[in-house]
Every structure is written in C-alpha cells, then in structure tokens.
Write a protein that binds this DNA or RNA. Sequence first.
DNA 1: AATAACAGTAACATAGAGGTAACCAAGTAA
DNA 2: TTACTTGGTTACCTCTATGTTACTGTTATT
Lengths: 118, 118
Amino acid sequence: MGCKIEEFQQEQKKRMRAVQDSMDTLNGKWKISIISSICCYKKRRFSDILNDIEGISNRMLSKELKELEINKLVKRTVLDTQPITVQYELTEHGDTLQTIISNLTDWGILHRNKIVGK
Amino acid sequence: MGCKIEEFQQEQKKRMRAVQDSMDTLNGKWKISIISSICCYKKRRFSDILNDIEGISNRMLSKELKELEINKLVKRTVLDTQPITVQYELTEHGDTLQTIISNLTDWGILHRNKIVGK
DNA sequence: AATAACAGTAACATAGAGGTAACCAAGTAA
DNA sequence: TTACTTGGTTACCTCTATGTTACTGTTATT
C-alpha cells in the first residue's frame, strides 16, 4: 500500500511531466512567434506569417505549423482560390495558451530588468 | 513620428522578446526538474539533487546549475564541512517562477487530456 | 594502504535542431 | 513565352545540446 511519501512523489512526477509537456509543445525556435502572428489577425495565410516573422524560412514555418496542427493548437484550411491559399487559425484549445503566453511575457520583462539591471 | 501601427509592432516585438527570454531561461532538459527539487526542500546539496532527478549526470547538473546561477534564480553556498558540501537554494527572483511553473503544470495536464483524449 | 564521498571538470561522441538552396505543380499576369 | 505567386518538399550541411566515460583533489573511513 502506498504511504504518504510515495504518493507525494508520484504526484510530483506527474507535475514534472505536465510541465515538460507544456514546454515541449511551445518549443521550437518559432512556435510562439507563429502563434502570436495567427492570434493577432485571427486568420492568417502561410505567406503572410512568413512575412510577419523576420528570419523564418518556409521550410521551418511548414515544419512548425505541422507540429502545432498535430498538437491541435492550430487549424489548417485550404481555400478554393486561385492560386490556392491556405488559412491558419487557432483552435479553441490553442486559445487556452493565452494565459501562459501572457504570464511568460510578464515574467520575461521582470527577468530582463533583474538581469540587465534596469 | 511613429504612427499607431508602428508603435503596436514595436510593442509586439518587445512582448515576443520577453516570451523568448522566459523560454530561454527555463530551457535545458533538466532546469525545471532542478528548480522543483531545490524548491521542494528549500535547501539542497549537489549530490541530493543528483539523486532526486533520475537520469541526470553530474556534468549536466553542474552545467544547468551554473546557468541558473547566472540567471540569478539559484544561490550557491559552499559550506565549511568535511568533505565540503555545496548548498543550493532559490533566490527571491527564483521564487517568482512559481506562478509560471504552476500555470505550465495546469496547461500541460489540460493538453495531455486533449491530445491523448482522456 | 586502499577505498569511498563530495563537488565537480575534461575529452570525446552523437543525435537532432535549425539553416540554405534548389525544386515542384498549378494557374496567371506580362 | 517567360516569369511570378502560392504553399510547400527535398537534399544537404552545420552547430549545439546532451550523453558517456574517465579524471581531479581533499578528507574520512576501513
């Protein structure tokens, strides 16, 4: 039968795994920029995002978008236009990231002040 | 003179940089585990952390601790014992991470349920 | 005299993240 | 006819993060 300490350690392991899950989904040099770009305009085409984010290549954008789609954060829609355009938008689940991103923003500012020394 | 759109874009860039600052300080395969270990016991020695985290090597622990120290999240104290022991604890600044880690935990659980499908 | 604990460091190896450049197919404007 | 736009894919290369193993110096224990 599990004693209190074992239970606590199990809980702790679960929490660690959860944090790592979050970090993994947000990781990749461009993910947060991409999410922000889409979020900012609600709906955004591939080439628009490519222009929004300076420095990103089409290869990386394609790759990161795929991962975001797999993680159900972003929805991809092919529009029947000429030439074909593809629209990306956040899913409901993607929207739930906003609190986290907002917290990361706040802490990042705090941290920079602390390190650089205002 | 900057128009509204330019100002907005500048703000957006700052926010992006802030998020990346946060992600960068938390990145590294073991950082969050290390922070959690120290946080859990308030004060923790090198070899204790090494035992707390399964899979980490002394090389990586040393390296990650250094980065955490540079980022003023962790304080290192050499104790005058035999043999010498080194104590690590969170700084006040390190403590401010708790909200973020807690948010990342919550979202990670939510996300896993969404992806695995409960 | 040999071994172990402590807190690391040094040397080397490898997988994977990310960068660069070229290419594809379909349609369209010059 | 040529070149451009759109949304990618493919091949190749490099660099960094991490892993593995062995080693350091000091003191205490056996």
